[in-house]
């Protein structure tokens, strides 16, 4: 644990030196919810239909914002490997007395801590400013789901960061992936309303699983058996990503 905390300490110091990153981590999801969500809520008028019930777009979009912020934070954190490589410190890290797993867990834990603050901010705004009926009794599970989301995506994107040598290639790949994964998911629209092919593709996307779990925990939308299956799927995705990320890190030297 000492080594994991050393990574957290180091990343915290680094992040405090970059207000831009700090702003992204804290404010961007909030702005998405307040600007995009509110605007779209007006545009779609009566809201969207989920499982036969009409809900406001703000209620629907809250889970999308949370899962999007997990994905965005994971991109930020995995991009940090390129900065560390450019500074040469990345290879020195690999000579420190810690396992590759501890190194990854430390990076993940730091990002989770950031995500807790981010989630608290977003949920507070959702309840107080947008009047979204957030299920506060499930808040601890929501927090866990956010942490799992960060972990899963961070480990998955780390595999790419370790295998790709150039940061411009990484940026291109991640931009394409971000675009495809976001729009082939339940992040922006309910999957009941999309063509069948898109619905099937979306259900093969871990971003959909994560968003649906968050939606169930925050506003109670979705059926429990499906959510349970999606939770299991995402946890499997997380574990496999972690194992592959460790292997990729061993090869990165």
């Amino acid at each position: 644990m000492r080594n994991v905390l050393a990574v957290v300490y180091r990343d915290a110091l680094i992040r405090l030196t970059s207000l831009t990153w700090l702003f992204f981590d804290m404010a961007v999801p909030l702005l998405y919810l307040l600007m995009f969500g509110v605007g779209f809520n007006k545009a779609v008028g009566m809201g969207v239909t989920m499982g036969g019930a009409a809900v406001s777009y703000n209620d629907f979009f809250l889970a999308g914002v949370l899962s999007m912020s997990c994905f965005g934070s994971a991109i930020n954190q995995s991009y940090g490997f390129f900065v560390d490589r450019d500074n040469g410190i990345f290879y020195e890290f690999l000579t420190y007395p810690m396992t590759r797993g501890e190194f990854l867990l430390g990076k993940m834990l730091f990002q989770c801590i950031m995500a807790l603050a981010q989630t608290a901010l977003t949920l507070t705004a959702a309840v107080l400013l947008l009047d979204i009926p957030v299920n506060l009794t499930l808040l601890p599970l929501t927090v866990l789901a956010v942490m799992a989301g960060i972990a899963g995506w961070f480990f998955a994107l780390s595999i790419v960061a370790f295998r790709v040598r150039r940061n411009d290639t990484f940026n291109t790949l991640i931009n394409v992936a971000y675009f495809v994964l976001m729009f082939i998911s339940s992040m922006f629209y309910p999957l009941d309303a999309v063509p069948l092919w898109l619905k099937y593709l979306s259900y093969a996307n871990p971003l959909t699983w994560h968003t649906d779990v968050l939606r169930y925990l925050t506003v109670g939308a979705g059926s429990l058996p499906v959510i349970a299956l999606e939770s299991a799927g995402f946890l499997l995705f997380l574990v496999i990503s972690f194992l592959f990320a460790q292997q990729a890190l061993k090869k990165a030297a």
Binding site: Y9, R10, L13, T17, N87, G88, I89, P97
Partner: peptide, 23 residues
């Protein structure tokens, strides 16, 4: 290592603090 390896965006003092903690 042969390559430069320092935390460019942390002060020299913080470089020492992080290195020491890792060890």
């Amino acid at each position: 290592l042969q390559e430069n390896a320092v935390e460019m965006f942390l002060t020299v003092r913080h470089n020492f603090l992080t290195f020491g903690r890792f060890h």
